[in-house]
Design a protein around this nucleic acid. Structure first.
Lengths: 224, 224
DNA sequence: AGCTGTGAATATGTTCACAGCG
DNA sequence: CGCTGTGAACATATTCACAGCT
């Protein structure tokens, strides 16, 4: 009987997603079992890290043998809360919203955008696939009516806070926020920020440091 | 005199981007100085964290007064390597590529997509803004010819590794990777992964914990 | 006095190394 | 034996608390 072990860190959770993805690949390759070492190699971490991450949730492996690919996959889906369909509201029918609506990997994980909202009257009434774009004034009724708990926010910075508050009022508990602003919401609301400019800036910083043209000098790396 | 104190962590670098963004807001509001406490509040961290982060790169504040908004902004841009134009190659002219091409915050930071590549002959020859889409077979000459060191990769998973290797061969040193796969590249190449499904999965995990379905109430049996 | 800059203390995350089970 | 699961050792990151400028 699996008692509660220790509290998994955010990085652990993110790695679970990577393990899940790797297991799907292994299953497609026909592998029945996998060792922590191979799984680690596939996601770019260490065998000890894999075992420690999994140990927060139970013991899924067999000593001397490794992990069974399909059962572990099922278990990780379960842990990540992917054993169900998640209806999602998309607020902001711009370029990024459109790209995310079409993003195939969401549907494969049970995330289904069931409502699209925008403030632009020219967009309202358009259909993307089978989903009609509604005006943002209908946020409350559409979100609450469909029992939507997850939102993707791709509106400009200026409107983000206001929309986020309306989402929370309508029952949303988790927001994937693409607006480059710090949302101020009650602490029980989960917010995950994706800041695309910041990602390029982190690269810019690293490249900027490495002016030396010799491909020798680096900054702390573990020899294998 | 930029004396380097200790090695800044990756999280420190990411917060520098947030500080920079917050300073732009403060400048627009007409603020001349800012305390570590206010800056912290704007980006959702603590005053001590702000001071520690900045201290890795020098002393930019005045005791008793705080930091001057505009000079600190300039200093952060400098540290992040944003005091120049960064030509960028975009590989993958799909939905996400298109959204990123239009993304206004890249240009504002000096990132300019100067080359777009795709393998689809129907896309080659189209123009996005002033940039023509070229066939991926021209990768080497276009990337090397323009001295491009940064790439954004938005191709499907299957092609990502091959394209990434070609980019590195052509002189690219940093890759913003949207393909859901672990790229295997020389250690001196900086790779920053953006995994959109993973971001939703992290939310799914958190929401799932707070209100687990009765069926899979398998862990955390002890409490709350 | 006010607020930064920073060593010291604490908290958190990762790696080691080995006991223990298949 | 081989490979997991895990406490202990280690490494890193954050927070505290206060000395030291302005």
């Amino acid at each position: 009987m699996p008692r509660r072990r220790s509290k998994p860190s955010d990085s652990t959770i993110r790695r679970l997603s990577l393990y899940l993805r790797a297991l799907e690949g292994l299953e497609a390759e026909g592998e029945a079992t996998v060792s922590s070492e191979l799984l680690a190699e596939r996601v770019g971490t260490t065998a000890a890290q894999v075992r420690k991450d999994l140990s927060h949730f139970g013991s899924f492996g067999k000593r001397g043998l490794g992990y069974q690919v399909t059962p572990l996959q099922a278990r990780l889906q379960d842990i990540l809360g992917l054993g169900r369909r998640w209806p999602v509201v998309l607020v902001g029918a711009g370029r990024i919203g459109s790209a995310l609506f079409e993003y195939p990997h969401f549907g494969a994980r049970g995330f289904e955008i069931v409502t699209i909202l925008d403030r632009d009257p020219n967009k309202v009434g358009q259909r993307w696939g089978g989903v009609e774009i509604s005006h943002i004034s209908e946020l409350e009724s559409l979100v609450r009516g469909a029992g939507v708990e997850l939102a993707i926010l791709t509106v400009p910075r200026e409107g983000a806070q206001e929309v986020a508050e309306a989402l929370v009022t309508a029952g949303v508990r988790g927001i994937l926020n693409f607006a480059p602003t710090q949302l101020r919401l009650p602490p029980e609301i989960e917010v995950n920020d994706v800041n695309l400019a910041l990602e390029l800036e982190a690269l810019s910083f690293a490249l900027h440091l490495d002016r030396p043209r010799a491909e020798d000098a680096d900054f702390g790396s573990g020899g294998v």
